[in-house]
């Protein structure tokens, strides 16, 4: 056994320990799906930050910055603004009536079981694809650390994730996320000074980057329209995604949400800025990588000493697991609560419900790995699909959720057409539109236009649907 393996085994042991503790603390569906709805700002904020930070931050983001330069970093500003908007405008009304799932909110506000099923189906498809891509990253890490084939690594990671998520539900996700956030922080905090030491400190780094790649510190490397539309789509896309909304239900009250989001934003900004600095170091240390995605693995193996390198790999794993477990909760609840218990078997007994809850997560978690093992969705295509599906989910939910709590006249038909229209428009732009503009923007435009027009053309919603959210 190498030291690297011990570090990973210790890390998994802590995760399982938290899962076991959560099983004992979970007493009913409220605990299982929204961690009792009584989280404090620290646990709530930590799980938000950990969910937000995926393997994409540690591999994809650093890769983009390595390729296009620091101007990409400015897109980061859209993230705190998006969270701020969510807390100030959406959260106060959205949390007046707590639900267990986001589709349950859709049913109450839009008075229909059909539209609840539609939103659950969108969540299911989008998250399964997203989980797939993250599991591929997990397979690669397992290959590096334990020398096992990537397929074994993928199955292994899925098994670990499923054990604690199925057993402990949202409680396990929240508390493991807090631990994963610490691991990510440690990885970034240790890596940056060591990388900087190799390039004569921060001043030396800036001088070296400027002389080697003068375009890095300009706004000319990327078309300005692309930077602005990226920022705008991060902003709009961040306001109403289901895995974030469910965390608003999980936190105790509005003051807690405001503090939790402050904590999350500070952690997300700090982690990203540290990763950006690593990207600059990679530009100097490894100037000719074939793809930017190799920047982080190169730093972990060639710059850091073995122990810290494995902490960095553990940090990437932590980023991956803390995002996948949250998506498992969202997708599992869509399957077992919103589709099975709501549409297929409404008379299921309370005892049977908890059983179906766990089965839902198990099914949603095993499908991606089965698809991967049968050869569906491997390679480059996955990254492309992930971006597309995050865009689809954002385009589908922004207007129905935000408009639902701000605009009394929003109707069921308006919301349904906004969901479907947003999806279709994003797909069409992705296939035929200009690559200088983010495809999700067309999704938002079409979704918003349909939401307003169709709502005005259909009969107004009944008072019972509005009463929980409006005075």
């Amino acid at each position: 056994m190498t030291l690297q393996m011990w570090i990973f085994l210790g890390y998994f042991a802590v995760v399982f320990g938290i899962g076991w503790y959560s099983l004992r603390a979970t007493r009913g569906e409220t605990d299982y799906w929204i961690a009792g709805g009584d989280l404090g700002w620290f646990a709530g904020g930590a799980t938000m930050a950990a969910t937000h930070t995926s393997a994409g931050t540690f591999v994809g983001t650093i890769g983009v910055m390595y390729t296009v330069g620091w101007s990409f970093g400015w897109v980061l500003l859209s993230i705190p603004l998006s969270y701020w908007f969510m807390v100030a405008v959406l959260a106060p009304r959205f949390t007046r009536q707590k639900e267990l799932t986001v589709p349950a909110f859709i049913e109450r506000r839009y008075y229909g079981k059909g539209i609840r099923g539609l939103s659950a189906a969108i969540i299911l498809v989008a998250t399964v694809v997203y989980i797939q891509a993250q599991i591929v990253a997990g397979g690669l890490i397992a290959n590096t650390v334990f020398g096992v084939p990537t397929t074994v690594g993928m199955v292994g990671f899925t098994a670990i994730l499923l054990v604690y998520t199925v057993v402990g539900g949202m409680m396990a996700v929240v508390y493991t996320d807090a631990f994963q956030l610490v691991v990510m922080g440690l990885g970034a905090v240790f890596a940056v000074p060591l990388a900087l030491r190799q390039v004569d400190g921060l001043g030396g780094l800036l001088t070296l980057v400027e002389s080697a790649q003068p375009h890095v510190f300009t706004f000319q490397a990327v078309p300005l329209t692309l930077l602005l539309t990226m920022g705008l789509s991060f902003f709009l896309g961040g306001i109403a995604t289901p895995e974030k909304l469910i965390r608003l239900y999980a936190m105790r009250d509005m003051p807690t949400i405001r503090r939790g989001v402050l904590f999350a934003v500070v952690m997300i900004l700090a982690l990203n800025l540290l990763v950006f600095l690593l990207a600059l170091a990679a530009i100097v240390l490894f100037p000719a990588l074939p793809t930017g995605d190799l920047a982080m693995p190169m730093i972990a193996t060639a710059v850091l000493p073995a122990t810290l390198g494995s902490i960095m790999l553990a940090a990437i794993t932590a980023a991956m697991m803390s995002t996948v477990d949250s998506l498992l909760i969202v997708a599992g609840s869509a399957l077992s609560v919103d589709i099975w218990q709501n549409l297929i078997d409404p008379d299921v007994s309370p005892g049977g419900r908890m059983w179906i809850d766990r089965l839902g997560i198990f099914v949603v978690g095993t499908v991606p790995v089965l698809l991967l093992l049968s050869g569906v969705g491997e390679g480059e295509l996955v990254q492309f699909i992930v971006l597309l599906f995050t865009a689809l989910m954002a385009a589908a939910f922004l207007f129905p959720v935000l408009g639902g709590v701000l605009w009394r006249r929003a109707t069921r038909e308006g919301a349904a057409s906004a969901m479907v229209g947003g999806l279709v428009a994003t797909f069409i732009w992705e296939a035929y539109g200009s690559p200088d503009v983010e495809p999700v923007l067309s999704g938002f435009l079409v979704s918003g236009a349909l939401f307003v027009t169709v709502s005005l053309l259909t009969p107004p919603p009944p008072d019972t649907a509005l009463e929980p959210y409006f005075d």
């Binding site: 510190f217 706004f219 402050l262 500070v266």
Partner: peptide, 30 residues
């Protein structure tokens, strides 16, 4: 230009966080 593009991002992040804290304080005093 380097100073503005590089340090400006850190400054901007700081400003957003401070502005959020001020908003939070104001919101809870109301």
């Amino acid at each position: 230009m380097t100073d503005f593009v590089f340090w400006g991002l850190f400054l901007a992040c700081g400003i957003v966080v401070v502005a959020y804290v001020v908003w939070m304080w104001w919101e809870e005093r109301r």
